[in-house]
Design a protein around this nucleic acid. Sequence first.
DNA 1: GTAGGGTTAG
Length: 632
Amino acid sequence: MGEIGYARNVFDQITEPNVYLWNAIIRGYCKHSLFGEVLEMYSEMQGNGVSPDGFTLPYVLKAWSGGGGSSVKMGFGVHGHVFRNGFESDVFVQNSIVAFYAKCGRLDKAWIVFDRLDDRSRTIVSWTSIVSGYAQNGQPLEALRIFSQMRHSDVKPDWIALVSILRTYTDINDIEQGKSIHGIVIKTGLELEPDLLIALTSMYAKCGEVLVARLLFDQMDIPNVILWNAMISGYAKNGHADEAVALFRKMIGVNARPDSITVRSCIIACAQLGSVELARWMDDYISRSDYRNDVFVNTALIDMHAKCGNVDFARRIFDHVSNKDVVLWSAMIVGYGLHGRGREAIDLFNSMKCARVEPNDVTFIGLLLACNHSGLVEEGCNYFQSMKRDHGIEPRHQHYACVVDLLSRAGFLDRAYEFIMEMPIEPGITVWGALLSACKICRNVSLGEYAAERAFSLDPFNAGHYIQLSNLYASVGKWNNVKKVRKMMSDKGLSKDLGYTSIEINGKLQAFCVGDKSHPRSKEIFAELEKLERRLKDTGFTPNTESVLHDVQNEDKEESLCNHSERLAIAFGLICTTPGTPLRITKNLRACVNCHAATKLISKLVEREIIVRDANRFHHFKDGVCSCGDYW
DNA sequence: GTAGGGTTAG
């Protein structure tokens, strides 16, 4: 940036710059994407009585479409400028106009100019402008149609044309067709330009083919930051959070400079892993980096700490950000919501109003979540009402589902049903799922069956809903119906999601599934487990056998309950940490009634704080009580 | 000395 400033100083000392010099300074600004300056210089140039030439206009057009120039008003002026200055047949100027209109989404106008081009002027550049115009404006299918039309003409795609079409395969989620572009590259022996490599890597990574993506990634001698980002975010998005973090560490190790997108992708990966220690490491890294004051990065950090169980850490970051925007406020409110700290969420919402920050739809998701997880029924309903009435925000599916969950879990099944019937939009899968799971808790078979029916019709292959219905039948002893549901599942080839629990020991995550005997210290774990069960029984704890699916003898039920993966994780945590250390546990399903009750008691017996992140929220167990107040 | 492309998004 210093060079362009220096160039400007020199330029300003010239008394009567000619077109050549004006173009040079305009080109400089254009190269640095300083489009405002480009337009300023352009008008200054005309004010000084110098007419633009065929080299000037492409820069100006680029500035118009890239900067504040995408306004319609600017667009209208374009042709005027070109005609007034006599460039209606200049190849470069004409192609710039095609690109200008395409970028602004005015494909109709782009086509008019495109069609008027003579054969000599209609090049791969013109085609690429049109194709990427569609691709960038949310019409991937149209982009693909034009691309294939182009391939039937004599125009040969070059690497930029391929780069611009590649993203459309990701958009329509068609990796097979995307691979064919990779095929073209190999077949035609096109040079694998760095930017083409990036586009290919990014496509494979986004579509979940991380192994192929990594092969391409490793081909680049000096990977640039965009390539790192494509790979890291690809890992994070496709359930390879650990690899995302590992690659980020490698990046730092080789002294490559992460940008704000890199660190955000890595923070998202850390949030997925849920490790407190890793979260602290990331936090520490950011605090020493240039991004410590970046609002986007701080928002991601708040979300990460909340998801890793440290909502108070999240709050510390929140308090340190000086210019809080609505998303930052919302992230903090959602964080409190996850931990069932409803009052704090509401307090924060009030402070937000005092700070004159207007809430958005995410803010209300957080509020409703917080009310839901704290049993604040009337407050939640009031916020839902106020959303549209006071803030003009139209509720989305998630908001409706939250209210249904809130009402039905509090036992107001009738109100929940009425609420659904009055919805102005078609109730979605989440709404019926919420009602169904509440019916299981309240043992309301008839409404539960209805909700299940609706859920099955919307998503016949989601095993979770069948399990819910089966659990509902089991809870009232309708074993025949349990069998029927299980048959429905096996007919559809569905099986129960395997429950697993992981526990963090010294920053390392160890996972267990039900009755897991694969751990090297399995013997010790089961011995500890037995000890725990004995102590539980001594205090008079009787397992609630309802949460067992099968119609089996009571003894067997109890046996399988004690084997639940979270019990194993707790036992393991107890034998390898020093007394008093909190245990941090993550599970992929919702907490089961029995384990929840047992964990409360265990926290008291062994004098440990036990923090559990389940599929929906956090539970902080301490001294025999849980932060959720048994409401989840 | 001029025209087309790419990472991300609470």
